[in-house]
Design a protein around this nucleic acid. Structure first.
Lengths: 191, 191
DNA sequence: TTGCAAAGCGGAACCGTGTTCCGTATCTTT
DNA sequence: AAAGATACGGAACACGGTTCCGCTTTGCAA
């Protein structure tokens, strides 16, 4: 994942990398994840070349900015499983958490679906980190008999991600609710 | 919606418009809905200016190309309601139909979510035409007591559309199934 | 048939974005 | 202080959408 690991020899390089991370975080909030690279560079007070040296692809930058939150989301999985009354309840809560994360990051979900720019890496990162967590929740809920076992974690993750697309720019659309409905669709009937 | 209504004075203008529609349809199949405008113009054997004169925005072109199929989808709603055993079954079938339409049009769903180019018009067209149909199905199924009545047609439409994003480029992802699950989530429990 | 105004055409040119590349500046080490 | 390594900046290029305007075609009228 590039040299995002903050370990460089030169002081200016480290300073610039941090400046870029800060600038990117700020710009992402106001202008969305797809903000022009030039804007981020400008905000950080560095040239365009510098941004590309530190983060070879846009995805690397986005990942670096959101790494902590993705990590938190991943760690919440097992935690919820331990603290919830049933595995299904844990799955519900985790889905909520994940949706919140996607929706509050202006355009993140949309960006990840955008075939255009090299966002496949981003997609891959999310999958790598969160798929196992989702799978664990899904399996637990299936094992407890609360849900059907015929949907794999990959599809559920993609489905949740997709439902979040554009959620932040449309007040008539409530992604969290639709995701809840989707998860509810997994539930065995009769209950 | 522009002069898409094939009524022009000059013969060459009408010919070119048809050539553009044919070319666009062909290119959409092979290169997706987001194919470069230049490619479509080239395929039709006309200049770039011509394409913009006939279809002021990309969306107008896309709409013109798919108008028939959208129409068919709209008309299928009432028909299914009449021919299905229950309103809920009709809703299920219609969702399937709609998903098929979106998924088989290379990138249509994705394009509609793409904030970038003027695809809002496209979005608006789909909504105008299909929302009432969806609403009717939803209301019927709610009235029959098969589903909960607390999700409006707009959100369901958006949800279905979103679930179809990227479905054609990922063999591990089955949009139809997820949409079925979402619809199932509407169902009242207990059965 | 011919003339001519209206309608339509083509594509060069412009804009905004991502990305590359290399001469120059800065840092670190000795 | 000098030299080598490292990083920087931003001009330049690629690409796709869109505009604009001089030129061509068409159809009507004389």
């Amino acid at each position: 994942m590039s040299d995002s690991a903050t370990g460089s020899k030169r002081k200016d390089a480290r300073r610039n990398q941090q400046a870029l991370l800060d600038a990117a975080a700020a710009v992402f909030v106001t202008a969305g994840v797809e903000a022009p690279v030039r804007d981020i560079a400008a905000k950080a007070g560095v040239g365009i070349g510098t941004i590309y040296r530190h983060f070879p692809t846009r995805a690397d930058l986005v990942i670096a900015v959101y790494r902590h939150q993705v990590e938190a989301c991943a760690e919440a999985g097992p935690a919820l499983l331990a603290s919830s009354p049933t595995p299904y309840a844990a799955l519900e809560s985790w889905a909520d958490l994940f949706v919140d994360f996607l929706v509050t990051k202006h355009g993140l979900a949309t960006a990840m679906r955008n075939d255009s720019t090299g966002f496949e890496t981003l997609h891959a990162y999310f999958l790598d980190r969160l798929l196992p967590v989702c799978a664990q929740l899904l399996e637990a809920a299936a094992a407890s008999g609360e849900i059907r076992a015929d949907l794999d974690a990959y599809q559920l993750m993609r489905g949740i991600g997709n439902l979040c697309v554009g959620a932040e720019t449309d007040t008539r659309y409530d992604a969290r609710r639709l995701v809840a409905l989707l998860v509810a669709g997994l539930r065995r009937r009769v209950g």
